[in-house]
Design a binder for these strands. Structure first.
Lengths: 240, 240
DNA sequence: CGACGCTTTGACACAACTCAACAACCGTGG
DNA sequence: CCACGGTTGTTGAGTTGTGTCAAAGCGTCG
């Protein structure tokens, strides 16, 4: 069988060994792909469709809008991440979801997802495990915005991003692509775009990291970890 | 059979009708209760136990500590809420969990939880639904801290609290008990305790709400909703 | 009575926001 | 070819929201 393993499969297999049938089911889930242009909004908050998405390539973000026009970005899904699982259970999307670059996604119907959970409980557990990790990231994000200074939380953000990208093999050690502009970063970090700029300058001047031409370079990971209070993640366990 | 229905059962039955066997299983899950004194830390971040808790009575909070001693409160579980489901899947607690008042909790082992999910898939779905709602609340909290001013986010917090308490029948319309002091509120709202005090004064002076003697009174819900950008929740759907 | 936990207030400092302007870099079309 | 607007990044000056420090008031409880 010639199944190129998906990013999702890669991720889930750090949690548990996938049987052939499970791998096949996973590939099947992602068999229908959809190209979406940068800037397109795939899911609108409040929408009641029953679709979840699996991001295949490109960058996206999930966010909420406020009455005054402000925007808070919740997370940046990376290839292999699922989006909208929660919406499936709640029957209505609690946040919007946009493509930041051109992206490819697979869409999965709620009913299909449910059937998979029933037929392949182990796969269901693995997907829940991944969802739990995403949730833990949101919590860490909350802590960042609530209790870290602008420079700390910016540093923390890029360290976490670096780790996530390394996990799916999309980032070498010191450097990685990052198509996020300062407006987007501002909406994610709960800052103004102008202040993001100043913070990035500080990080550059202190020779900790740079963001230039959509490329992040980590200059001094150790010092960054201390500044951000960042705890590199323990390696993934295997299920008991 | 003389089963007093638990808060959890009440909550889940807004999502779906519970069969007798399911109700029994649910009661069984909560058959072992544990009293815990105010201030006690039940779960410590990083801990690797495989226990989840169901809060029966009292107030608690889940939070994370920072290297500099700061604390960010993630959520205030109310009676009927589950805590630590995520930790079960991740095999390690990603946050701490403390009792704020004297509380009663039921503890559930991971293996037991898994068995329930297998034997009563519908019950599993209901619990996941509840977990999804909790997750949505964390997201809303993130938005609050990231993009709302101190007074907006404080107003939003109490409106949400009011709605949650009404849902489990613990709050009349205008007034409810709230044992949270200004230090705790500060750690939840990402503010300093002193500023919380100033904000509460403003809310009082503008005749929107008061917090006095551990009792919250909503004076003008309509204006508060506008100020906070709060959207009262739509009624719960039943599963298809 | 004093000790303690919590609230309240004032004065001041500082982090982050706003406004305004400009520079660099595109791709487009005249 | 250059002019052009659009997007993104950069910087300065002034404002404001929130944090910090210090002190006092007020219950409750031992």
């Amino acid at each position: 069988m010639l199944l190129k393993t998906s990013h999702l499969a890669t991720k889930l297999s750090t949690f548990m060994q996938l049987s052939e049938r499970e791998a096949h089911c996973l590939a099947d889930l992602q068999s229908f792909s959809l190209s979406v242009n940068a800037g397109k909004e795939l899911v609108h908050e409040g929408q009641t469709g029953h679709l979840a998405y699996i991001l295949q390539t490109g960058w996206a973000c999930s966010f909420k809008l406020l009455p005054d026009g402000g925007r808070q970005i919740i997370a940046f899904p990376l290839p292999g991440d699922c989006v909208g699982l929660r919406s499936v259970l709640l029957h209505t999307a609690d946040h919007s979801f946009s493509a930041l670059t051109d992206v490819v996604v697979s869409s999965v119907e709620a009913s299909r997802m449910m059937r998979v959970f029933n037929e392949f409980p182990r796969l269901g557990a693995a997907i829940l495990w991944a969802a739990s990790r995403d949730e833990a990231m949101v919590v860490e994000h909350l802590v960042s915005i609530g209790r870290r200074s602008a420079i700390e939380r910016t540093a923390h953000f890029f360290l976490e991003l670096s780790e996530r990208l390394q996990l799916v093999g999309l980032a070498p050690d010191r450097e990685f692509d990052c198509p996020l502009n300062q407006y987007v970063l501002a909406d994610a970090l709960g800052l103004s775009a102008i202040h993001v700029n100043r913070v990035l300058r500080q990080l550059r001047e202190r020779k900790l990291m740079t963001l230039k031409d959509r490329k992040v370079t980590i200059l001094d990971r150790a010092k960054l970890n201390v500044l951000a209070g960042f705890q590199p993640q323990r390696a993934g366990h295997n299920q008991s």
